[in-house]
Design a protein around this nucleic acid. Structure first.
Lengths: 231, 231
DNA sequence: GAGTGGTCTAGACCACTCT
DNA sequence: GAGTGGTCTAGACCACTCG
């Protein structure tokens, strides 16, 4: 019993999602059926399902069933976009401008993605009519074939990654620093050169543990703030 | 069964910690004994214990037992202090300066704490010889009697709150904005006026759900960054 | 009413820690 | 070896959802 049985159930479900056997929104077998299929008891299957629910990969509802989480635009924005209004309510960002291109990877990107080319997406986002976000994302081209041809891209990129490429983002690691607005920032946001901004370097990690996107964002935080809870 | 049995176990343990019956580091009864004592099965007691472990309130180790989490300076720093070095490793902050005083609460503090007086702690912290943090904390006086007389306070305040006042911090809500260094910031940190800083407004919440501290911090992030993981 | 997840039990055995 | 948490089972009943 070096590897617990519930771990096997857990890994099996992850594999089925990664392989596309279970797409976004797909319903899983009941606890009893899943246990029978994999040769474990209902309680053991249940333990794996609960762990997957806690990681946000599955959603369970009493009386309905267990489903693969669909990365809706709502979840994408609320969970992975941390800008909030002064009263703590969600800020709904709207897409203001976009530029999608393909270019050679930097050395850091080659090390991160193991590829020579990346797509680069530069976007401006506005809240309440003011441009407050400027972000530049880079993605390995082989994971996202034909991405540039899909422009203009939808507001919520992670929902697109899951719907169109079967890549589900499970985690994002962010590193924040305070910077001064550059000329590009100032032009896009309509602010003075040297306005203080929060710069965020994000690595987005999918459920199989790969880094699938890197993003450099700059947030104007005079009316908004970046909210986070530590537990 | 409107309220599950494991919830009763959960609440009972929280109450014992809040009441001081279970202090930091105290060992709990075994799952079997706890279940017998509270009239539930071992599995039900176990479920409550695991939930408390996931909130960071208990620590469990196979073969040893279940213990009330001690807020060590290490946990305090690593978990509730998010500044990291460029390579992601922990930045160990050292206390550089301190001022403790008692003053009348602001209107916001009165609403938050329900008290008329607060202690105010202003501190500077350094990493690798440079002052990079300036923080001002305020605490309701009745929860922390005699705090001002304890100056100089230890580096890790949350460990002090638990050891000396039985108040265990379980959660911290932070709101981040980018600001420019004021004259006070510049003097303390030895930087130019107008250097960009990350300003953090934190509310610290204990295991019984009370807000027990408010803190306004400013971080110099030229060599460090504020790191956070979204799941 | 059939099917789902949520709670709860009683009992078994394994793996780890400490003395 | 005694005591702890970790895994696993089989079965029961409750609560919710939906046709």
């Amino acid at each position: 019993m070096s590897v617990p049985l519930y771990q096997h159930v857990y890994d099996t479900i992850i594999a089925r999602i990664v392989d596309g056997d279970l797409g976004p929104g797909a319903m899983l077998p009941s606890e009893t059926d899943l246990g029978r299929e994999l040769g474990v008891s209902q309680g053991t299957a249940r333990k794996a399902l609960i762990a997957l629910e806690q990681r946000g990969i599955l959603q369970r509802r009493q009386g309905r069933g267990t489903f693969v989480t669909t990365t809706t635009p709502e979840r994408d924005h609320f969970h992975f976009f941390r800008l909030r209004l002064a009263d703590g309510s969600e800020a709904s960002p709207e897409l203001e401008s976009e530029r999608v291109s393909r270019r050679a990877a930097t050395e850091a990107e080659r090390a991160l993605f193991g590829e020579d080319d990346v797509f680069e997406i530069e976007r401006g986002r506005s809240v309440a009519g003011r441009v407050v976000v400027r972000e530049v994302s880079s993605l390995p081209v082989t994971l996202f074939p034909g991405l540039a041809d899909r422009a203009p891209l939808p507001n919520a990129l992670y929902a697109l990654y899951q719907q169109s490429y079967g890549i589900a983002i499970a985690e994002a690691d962010e590193q924040l620093q305070a910077v001064l607005a550059s000329e590009d920032d100032a032009t896009l946001m309509g602010i003075d050169l040297g306005t203080p901004l929060i710069q965020v370097r994000r690595k987005a990690i999918d459920i199989s543990g790969r880094v699938v996107e890197q993003r450099l964002s700059r947030y104007l935080t005079d009316a908004l703030h970046y909210a986070v809870t530590l537990r």
